[in-house]
Design a binder for these strands. Structure first.
Length: 565
RNA sequence: GCGCCCGUAGCUCAGCCGGAUAGAGCAACGGACUUCUAAUCCGUAGGUCGCAGGUUCGAAUCCUGCCGGGCGUGCCA
């Protein structure tokens, strides 16, 4: 369903024309007949190679050890016969056997018009065909505030969900709340210790406790609302109640932060609910019934090794308590029981040792290992003017997502988080993110959008009215820069499709930078509004289409498209 | 030790189901504001794609080994 690496196939008419030419040539005996490959058509990186190119002749040639150019000759012959110059204006064989094609003006006018007619939806595709996909992301434990790393995961998950939704998948965004287990217990003990301190009772602070200042804040709030209720009670039950109180409070803040970041989840899934409603027990019984579990040294083990993992994993410890993996098994079983065809988890890179056991778990509950896709997000290096910002998670001091958002704003943060593929570390320079200069890619792109809006406003003020798409005449668009802009507009559907297949939303930010460069260049060298009505009309139409493409791209990465700046 | 990821211009990184002269931003240098927003544009310079083999007509891209960096390898989360 998904293919990493990003296979790109264009959904433009060329695909059909060329595959039918391949078919014709095959039946004619000109090319090998077995299992014809789907032609890969790519946008040329240099206009001197035409608009589009395909290496299909070389692919075919390698199968029969023939000269690619001979095969290309045959294909070109068939292509000319089928198309008859309707969409392809010029076709050339070049280099080792590329077929380079330059499209007709009618073709480009047609694409531009369909963009104007369809609006932003022109860039959507339907590779998903309505299949249900869940994207689970952030899922930070409610034991402390979100930090920058979570922000990156949030930006990635949300943009990925957008891109998949634009590709015809039925998307659900989910946050898994780890509200059970040791960490929550530690949270309770940490807050309790700070609470007792407020009454002058020196309680020994837990060894692995959370040391952040926010723990003291929670303790103070607790004191305000509950007074001395927990002063003389039983540590055991008090800790439990306090933990619940603290976790709820932190989770509220997390929800606020994410909302402020523009991210809305369809569901917040509680880990505890899996224990409370018996899902964990049922999952384990199910696995046991199918011989995926065994008992050894007092613990209950999952046979993950036989399913590709390095070793077997404990699900119930010797002391009778469940490991997190036990609830994770139940959670993933639950996910698939809700009818998702595919489940995508976004995890911090330090969890990569967890992937194999989780996939083993997915197989054990009866799904395919690829029904679970895990995307690892590398760390964020927070810098200011090129120098690292001091952080120490051990002492509980770190820069929170909220602080970053307050300083640089949501648009800059989201865009910068998506400028790199998930797999590589990201330098996030606060000074650059805040700068209103061309160091900062967000403003560069947003400025391009605002500039177009400015032109459109001026056009309106001067009484220019754009006719309906069918009536617009685009014949005046003759400049190479104009062709370049249309090529960029036409590329967006393929960028989105490729990003969806490869699960790489960062392709969108690269694209936005490229099309914005073309726009700025065009803007600087040519005027849209002039005394020539037909020229103005055509150029205005072009601007509207560029605006649609940029706004669409920004929307998918979750960044606003301002009309003025 | 074993496993995974990364190593491309001075810096940060794209490109990677093999394909034409390896791209962009920043930094450097030189230019452009009487014109729809200069948060902009144009130009110059910058490369043994970590190293060594292999597969191929063709390798930054695939395979093997090595070097360097990160992470993982808990009855922790």
């Amino acid at each position: 369903m998904f293919r990493r690496g990003g296979e790109q196939k264009l959904k433009n008419p060329l695909t059909d024309i060329i595959s039918s030419a391949v078919k014709m040539a095959a039946s004619d005996g000109g090319v090998p007949q077995d299992e014809l490959p789907v032609p890969i058509i790519e946008i040329t990186r240099d206009r001197k190679f035409g608009d589009y190119a395909t290496n299909i002749a070389m692919v075919l040639a390698s199968r029969v050890n023939e000269d690619p150019r001979v095969i290309a000759d045959k294909l070109v012959e068939w292509i000319n016969k089928t198309d008859g110059g309707k969409t392809i204006h010029d076709i050339q064989i070049a280099g080792p056997g590329f077929i380079n094609m330059t499209m007709t003006e009618d073709f480009w006018a047609g694409t531009l018009k369909s963009v104007l007619t369809e609006g932003a939806a022109y860039a959507d595709n339907n590779i998903g065909q309505g299949r249900k996909v869940q994207v689970e992301f952030v899922s930070a434990n409610p034991t402390g505030p979100l930090h920058v790393g979570h922000g990156r995961g949030a930006a990635l998950g949300d943009a990925l969900a957008n891109v998949l939704a634009a590709s015809g998948y039925d998307i659900s965004r989910e946050y898994y709340v780890n509200d059970a287990g040791n960490q929550i217990d530690t949270l309770g003990r940490s807050v309790r210790a700070r609470y007792l301190e407020l009454f002058g009772k020196e309680e020994q602070f837990p060894e692995e406790g959370y040391k952040g200042e926010y723990i003291r804040d929670i303790a103070r709030t607790l004191k305000e609302s509950r007074g001395d209720d927990y002063l003389d009670g039983k540590p055991e039950s008090d800790t439990g109640e306090i933990a619940e109180y603290a976790a709820a409070m932190i989770l509220d803040d997390i929800k606020d932060d994410l909302e402020q970041f523009g991210i809305l989840f369809d569901r917040w899934f509680s880990e505890r609910s899996l224990f409370d409603n018996g899902d964990v027990d049922r999952a384990l019984e199910d696995l046991e019934g199918r011989d995926h579990l065994y008992r050894e040294e007092g613990a209950l083990w999952f046979r993950s090794m036989s399913l590709g993992d390095d070793k077997d994993r404990v699900v119930i410890k010797a002391d009778g308590s469940a490991t997190y993996f036990a609830s994770d098994l139940a959670y993933h079983r639950n996910k698939f029981s809700r009818g998702f065809d595919k489940v995508i988890n976004i995890w911090g890179a330090d969890h990569h040792g967890y992937i194999e056991r989780m996939k083993a778990g997915v197989v054990a509950v009866g799904k395919h290992r690829d029904d679970l896709e895990v995307i690892l997000v590398q760390l964020v290096n927070l810098l200011r003017d090129g120098k690292p910002v001091a952080m120490s998670t051990r002492a509980g001091e770190f820069v929170t997502l909220r602080e970053v958002l307050e300083e640089v704003g949501r648009d800059a943060a989201r865009f910068i988080f998506l400028t790199r593929k998930a797999d590589s570390k990201l330098d996030f320079d606060l000074a650059v993110a805040k700068a209103r200069s061309n160091d900062n890619p967000v403003f560069y792109v947003q400025y391009a959008h605002a500039r177009i809006c400015s032109i459109l406003r001026n056009a309106e003020e001067n009484g220019f009215k754009l006719p309906s798409p069918e009536e617009i005449s685009l014949g005046a668009l003759k400049l190479p820069e104009e062709r370049e802009l249309i090529r960029h507009i036409a590329a967006l559907p393929d960028i989105i499709e490729g990003a969806a297949m490869a699960l790489e939303p960062h392709r969108l930010t690269n694209y936005l930078r490229d099309i914005s460069t073309s726009l700025h260049n065009y803007y600087y060298h040519h005027r849209v509004l002039s005394d020539d009505p037909s020229l103005t009309e055509a150029r205005l139409a072009l601007m509207v289409a560029v605006r649609i493409a940029i706004a669409k791209g920004l929307e998918l990465v979750g960044v606003s498209a301002p009309e003025r700046m």
